[in-house]
C-alpha cells in the first residue's frame, strides 16, 4: 500500500456531460420498463428542454413512449406558450395541458392571495389533479439537486403516497444504478433523471446539443419593472398591478430560470447567444433560484414538496 495511483490508463473515456447523459437515459428507460403509465412533466423551461431531449435520445428511433404534461397556471410568459406549442408539434410529442380551472375561475393570483396559496392551488393542486386524472404511476420531472438544499436530499426515484406527498425522513435507499420501482396501488413515483446535473451542465449541454429553448433565456432590451431586488417583465395587462413608485423601463436582460410571469425575475445581462450564456453562468456568483419568489421564506421548498409540489 502506498500513496501512488496504480491504475492503468483506460482507453475509453466519456466527458462528464456524456456520462451524465448516459446515466439519465438509463433512468428514463428503467421507468418505461417498470411502470405501467409514465408521464413526463414539461414546464417549457431549460431543464425540461434537456429532459425532453434526453428522452428522445433514449428511445430513438422510436417516438416517445409517454405523453408530456404541462401543468399550466395561466401565468406563464407568452413566449413560453408559443415555444411549447410549436416545439411539441415539430417533434410530434403528445402534449397534455392541464390547469386548475376552478382556482383560475375564482381569480387566483399571487398579488391578492399570496405566493404560497397561489402556487399551492395552481401548481401543486393542478399537478396532483392532473396526475390523478391521468392515473400516472410515474412522473418524470426536471428537478436538479444543486437547485436548492431540500432537493439536494432527494432520491432519483422519489416515492409519493396516495396523496402525492413526500416523506423526506423515510426515503428508500438507492444503490448503484439499480432503481426499485415497486409501489403499492395508489402510490406513485416522481423520477428525476437529471438529479446530478448542475445549472452549468444544463447550459453546456444545450450549447453542445443545439437544444432549442425559449427565447427569453437570451438577453434583449425588454420592458421591466424593478420590484425589491427583482427585475420583473412588464406586460400591458399588469398596468393596475403596479405598486407605488414602479415605472416600467427598457432593460437589457434575460432569464436564468422561467416560471410564472408575476413571480419570476430577470437578470441584467448582455448574453445574447449560448457561448455568452455559458460564460455568464460560469461567472455567476448567485444561484438561479434567487430570481424565483417561490423559494424565498424558510423551508419553503421542503414544505411545498411534502405537499406534493415538484
Amino acid at each position: 500500500m502506498s500513496n501512488q495511483q496504480s491504475k492503468q490508463v483506460s482507453q475509453h473515456k466519456l466527458t462528464q456531460l456524456k456520462a451524465l447523459e448516459a446515466e439519465s437515459i438509463h433512468i428514463i428507460r428503467e421507468v418505461v420498463a417498470e411502470f405501467r403509465n409514465p408521464v413526463m412533466l414539461y414546464s417549457v423551461g431549460k431543464d425540461s428542454s434537456v429532459l425532453l431531449h434526453l428522452a428522445r435520445k433514449a428511445f430513438y428511433p422510436a417516438p416517445l413512449p409517454f405523453p408530456l404534461l404541462h401543468v399550466d397556471t395561466g401565468f406563464k410568459f407568452k413566449e413560453m406558450y408559443e415555444f411549447r406549442d410549436s416545439f411539441c408539434k415539430e417533434i410530434g410529442a403528445d402534449l397534455i395541458v392541464r390547469r386548475n380551472e376552478a382556482a383560475i375561475a375564482k381569480g387566483m393570483n399571487p398579488k391578492d392571495h399570496g405566493v404560497a396559496r397561489c402556487c399551492g392551488a395552481l401548481k401543486t393542486q393542478g399537478l396532483l389533479d392532473a396526475l390523478e386524472e391521468g392515473e400516472y404511476d410515474a412522473a418524470f420531472g426536471g428537478a436538479r439537486r444543486d437547485e436548492e438544499r431540500s432537493r439536494a436530499k432527494e432520491r432519483v426515484f422519489s416515492m409519493r403516497d396516495e396523496f402525492g406527498q413526500w416523506d423526506p425522513k423515510n426515503q428508500r435507499p438507492e444503490l448503484w444504478n439499480i432503481y426499485n420501482g415497486r409501489i403499492h396501488e395508489g402510490e406513485s413515483v416522481r423520477v428525476f433523471p437529471i438529479s446530478n446535473w448542475t445549472e452549468m451542465d444544463i447550459w453546456l449541454y444545450i450549447r453542445e446539443e443545439n437544444i432549442p429553448i425559449v427565447p427569453l433565456y437570451f438577453a434583449k432590451e425588454r420592458l421591466m419593472v424593478e420590484r425589491k431586488h427583482l427585475l420583473i417583465p412588464y406586460y400591458e395587462e399588469m398596468k393596475d398591478q403596479l405598486l407605488e413608485g414602479e415605472e416600467p423601463k427598457m432593460v437589457m436582460s434575460r432569464f436564468r430560470t422561467l416560471g410564472c410571469s408575476p413571480c419570476t425575475g430577470a437578470v441584467r445581462s448582455d448574453a445574447t447567444n449560448m457561448d455568452e450564456i455559458v460564460i455568464e453562468a460560469a461567472a455567476a456568483r448567485r444561484s438561479e433560484r434567487e430570481t424565483r419568489i417561490i423559494d424565498h421564506g424558510s423551508n419553503s421548498m421542503e414544505d411545498k414538496k411534502k405537499e406534493g409540489y415538484f
Binding site: 438544499r149 439536494a152 436530499k153 423526506p168 425522513k169
Partner: peptide, 24 residues
C-alpha cells in the same frame, strides 16, 4: 446549515440523509 437540507436535520443538529453537492 448549508448541507443539512431538511428541517428535521436543522432542528436536531444532525445529518440524517445523504446530501449531494457539486463542484468543478
Amino acid at each position: 446549515m448549508l448541507t443539512d437540507g431538511l428541517a428535521a436535520e436543522r432542528e436536531q443538529g444532525i445529518t440524517i440523509d445523504v446530501a449531494y453537492r457539486y463542484f468543478a
